[in-house]
């Protein structure tokens, strides 16, 4: 029995994980969500920008379809907050497959808030090069993005007409599934041009960013779906991230239960081996 448990067929584990994700999605229950300091810092910075006249925020979409489940709810929550506080938004993309996601999020949230393209927000589209795009924007935003994603000249859009460089943004947020925050935005952007920068990332990347928060290079961070749920709590609008906490909580408990089971069987197996060895010695 112990041997069978030690070498449990992984398909049984897969079945439990599947149930742990599927069943809570079909049920309705919730746990209170307590926002952490890192997420609260991002919220407060947006409130600070909103209190200024003509506040402008740059959002960089640096993720693809794979991380959309974690980062798209985060994007929606941020955009909902920015649109509600009437902050102007300029969106760019450092990943080619982020443009469609950025477009969907911007349109959805803008329509909800009654905001107008060109006046309240703009999507500049994708440019290849990562670090060089950031360097280019830092010196000459219009030269890097002469037109928006739909072909309109940057000069003709009210929201970008007065933007010369990254220094003209009051806040920059990078939503990243890869290394764009710590490998590109911080060394080539924040260190050079000294603008307030925050990051939204997948949960697995979050530990990477703590040194930069501690040093002040990032003013805050939203980590994974849990971070997005915290942000939804702060803005008072529960959406997909909050409902995603149900399956995430249950699945974490299931994985912990399996780990405990694995360790119990491991120790039982070790004790049995020790007993068998001592019996053989006596014999």
């Amino acid at each position: 029995m112990i041997e069978r448990l030690m070498n449990l067929d992984r398909r049984i584990i897969f079945l439990f994980v599947f149930a742990g994700v599927a069943v809570p999605l079909l049920m309705d229950f919730s746990f209170p969500i307590k926002p952490t300091d890192n997420v609260r810092a991002v919220y407060q910075q947006i409130e600070h920008v909103a209190a200024q006249k003509d506040g402008k925020v740059l959002i960089s979409f640096s993720y693809g379809g794979g991380a959309a489940a974690e980062l798209q709810p985060m994007a929606r929550a941020l955009l909902r907050h920015l649109f509600a506080r009437e902050v102007e938004i300029v969106a760019i993309s450092l990943w080619p497959d982020a443009v469609g996601l950025a477009q969907a999020a911007l349109k959805g949230m803008a329509d909800e808030a009654g905001r107008k393209y060109g006046t309240d927000y703009a999507l500049m589209g994708f440019k290849p090069g990562n670090s060089v795009v950031i360097l280019g924007m830092g010196q000459d935003f219009r030269g890097t993005f002469p037109t928006d994603n739909f072909g309109a000249s940057t000069d003709t859009l009210a929201v970008t007409a007065n933007v010369q460089s990254l220094a003209d943004f009051d806040f920059v947020i990078d939503l990243a599934a890869g290394e764009s925050i710590d490998h590109f935005w911080i060394p080539y952007g924040q260190e050079r041009f000294k603008f307030p920068l925050a990051g939204g990332c997948t949960a697995v990347m979050a530990p990477d960013l703590f040194p930069f928060i501690q040093s002040g290079q990032l003013i805050g961070m939203i980590g994974g779906l849990a971070g997005a749920a915290e942000y939804e709590t702060l803005i008072g609008h529960a959406d997909k991230a909050t409902s995603g906490m149900r399956p995430q909580s249950v699945t974490h408990i299931i994985i912990i239960a399996f780990i405990v089971l694995a360790n119990v069987t491991f120790f039982l197996s070790r004790r049995r081996s020790a007993n068998t060895t001592s019996h053989q010695d006596l014999a």
């Binding site: 994980v17 491991f266 120790f267």
Partner: peptide, 16 residues
């Protein structure tokens, strides 16, 4: 990944 993390964790996260 969620499934693979669970199976990898079961197989390897043992207090040796």
């Amino acid at each position: 990944l969620a499934f693979f993390i669970a199976s990898a964790a079961y197989r390897t996260f043992r207090a040796r």
